[in-house]
Design a protein around this nucleic acid. Structure first.
Lengths: 128, 128
DNA sequence: ACTTGACTTGGAGCGCACTCCAGATGCTAT
DNA sequence: ATAGCATCTGGAGTGCGCTCCAAGTCAAGT
């Protein structure tokens, strides 16, 4: 699969795919004799994984380190798992924070519905 | 309350507070005769609201428009409510996407626990 | 063989959201 | 009144995550 096809398939520009590979967010993609990228199933899997993780806000640094460890071989599995766990915990924390913001947003909308929106920044604070 | 105190209270730098005011993310803060900002309760409420919404990923543009409408008076309440509803819907969508990523992350961690992590980008894709 | 169009690289450019800076002014304490 | 520190403004600088560009190479069609 050429870079243009991979680009279309995943909704990332060719530039972004090359950029991801350059910074190590994707392992090196196989090439044809001529030096042209030929995305195989494994490459596609990585693209999809990274798109998924990045869209969820996982730090690029963590993902780069994950890929680097993967490339070092099987005995880095423990370290890779640790990265995943840490990122999961951060993701859970972010989602909890978002839930609180969402609650606040909903209360504000309700206040507008009740016509009691005057005096803008509502007293019912975000976290408290 | 001086800018240094507000900065400490909300964990935003003085520069960020001035920046937010400049771009209209915060309404103008009251000043002393000498021109120095004196954050009152309303200003603090706005800071807190913006900190909460920004941390949840609400678009800055939407918040700036919200503040602008608020400053235009009571008859913009409907438009303000509409912004809030739109941002809530986007926030819900983001949280659903994050939940799917979280599920995938958890499956990956489980795979490591089962020792079946080999062949890295797991077949169980993110969205599907 | 030659055209055409996609692909390659290294490096420059961009937009966002701050962040820092210089030079001026304000406030407090001695 | 003067030192010394906080704050003010406008504007420049920064880091991230792309995004674009130029100059060259590859590959398919005629």
């Amino acid at each position: 699969m050429t870079i243009a096809e991979a680009s279309r398939k995943y909704g990332l520009t060719a530039d972004t795919l090359r950029y991801y590979e350059r910074i190590g967010l994707l392992p090196p993609v196989p090439r044809t004799k001529g030096g042209i990228r030929d995305y195989d199933e494994a490459s596609c899997g990585w693209i999809e994984l990274m798109k998924c993780m990045r869209s969820a806000g996982v730090q690029i640094e963590a993902l780069i380190e994950y890929v680097a460890l993967y490339r070092q071989g099987e005995d880095t599995a423990g370290q890779r798992r640790a990265i995943l766990v840490e990122q999961r915990d951060q993701m859970v924390a972010r989602m909890e924070e978002m839930q609180r913001s969402l609650d606040r947003l909903n209360r504000k909308i309700e206040a507008y519905d009740n016509g009691s929106w005057r005096g803008e920044p509502a007293r019912g604070a975000c976290g408290q």
